[in-house]
């Protein structure tokens, strides 16, 4: 039977700087990507219609993409085919007068079978934006306060907070990069916001575990680290596996919402492996061997 064991990494070979460098570089680069995207497009991440307002239709037709483009006067933002069927998801980000009903009746007049429509006004999108941002900020602040209250020492606490911050920023930067290179289009949707909040919870789990083992247990630093890693890496890999399956299955089956949540969590949890066992670990090692001594 195949078995996986969490490899024991020889941390002794790397200095703290060598360990913390790559995650910090990735974080810096990610923030840079967000800034560049903001300068180019006016928002730090590509916003979906949940946040801009607009209309999304799911229609069945044999006319194909060109047929769909011909049928509508309103500017189409994107057409995504639904795998294994003659269905398409058409998005209009136009915030003009074209209401859901107008678009729906155009679609029906063109002989398309309208299966799902969703229209959000621009004002609704703006409120969603504000509330989502506020929600993320509150969740992050709440988590930070809790972590500080839990460990009551600065370095281990800030290590957890920085890791969690980086776990959120990296998936957002990946979204930007995918959008900028035109490889794949993921816009920020309600689902991705839910995933980012979820990420705060998931990301802190493995960090708390690591801190707990190193700071509150007997045994050598490396022994504790290995014990925590064995558990933590298994946890994260299990979650990544569940999320990869959810993303793949739900995108193949064209279930809305679930792929967005899954994909962001896959990116974020992968980033979390790096942040926890390189960035957080190096800060803890510094704290344990040098910080405490001071």
């Amino acid at each position: 039977m195949v078995e996986f064991d969490v490899p024991e990494i020889d941390y002794d070979r790397y200095s703290n700087r060598q360990l913390a460098g790559p995650p910090l570089a990735v974080l810096g680069f990610s923030l840079l990507v967000l800034v560049v995207y903001y300068l180019l497009h006016g928002t730090p991440v590509p916003l979906g219609f949940d946040f801009t307002g607009g209309t999304e239709l799911r229609i069945a037709t044999d006319a194909g993409q060109s047929g769909i483009r011909e049928a509508f006067d309103a500017p189409i933002d994107s057409i995504r085919p639904v795998q294994g069927s003659n269905e398409y998801i058409v998005t209009f980000l136009d915030q003009g007068s074209s209401s859901a009903e107008a678009i729906k009746s155009t679609a029906e007049a063109a002989g398309f079978d309208v299966q799902r429509t969703s229209t959000r006004s621009a004002a609704f999108g703006t409120t969603n934006q504000q509330n989502a941002l506020l929600g993320l900020a509150l969740a992050f602040a709440g988590m930070s306060v809790f972590v500080f209250a839990l460990f009551r020492t600065f370095v281990p606490s800030i290590a957890v907070v920085i890791s969690a911050f980086s776990d959120i920023v990296i998936p957002l930067a990946i979204m930007d990069l995918l959008a900028l290179t035109g490889l794949f289009d993921i816009n920020l949707s309600l689902g991705t916001v839910a995933a980012l909040l979820m990420l705060i919870g998931y990301s802190v789990d493995s960090d708390i575990l690591l801190n707990n083992h190193i700071l509150r247990r007997r045994g050598s630093f490396y022994e504790s680290t290995y014990n925590a890693m064995q558990t933590g890496v298994t946890m994260t890999l299990t979650s990544i596996a569940a999320m990869i399956v959810m993303t793949l299955v739900s995108s193949i089956l064209s279930i809305p919402l679930l792929p967005d949540i899954g994909l962001i969590l896959v990116f974020g949890l992968t980033a979390d492996l790096m942040n926890t066992y390189m960035l957080n670990l190096s800060l803890l090692r510094w704290y344990k061997f040098e910080g405490v001594a001071r």
């Binding site: 859901a100 309208v114 799902r116 969703s118 229209t119 006004s121 621009a122 004002a123 703006t126």
Partner: peptide, 13 residues
Amino acid sequence: LSEDAENDVSYIQ
């Protein structure tokens, strides 16, 4: 249901 109000209208078959 005007455009400046915060509304959301959806239909699913």
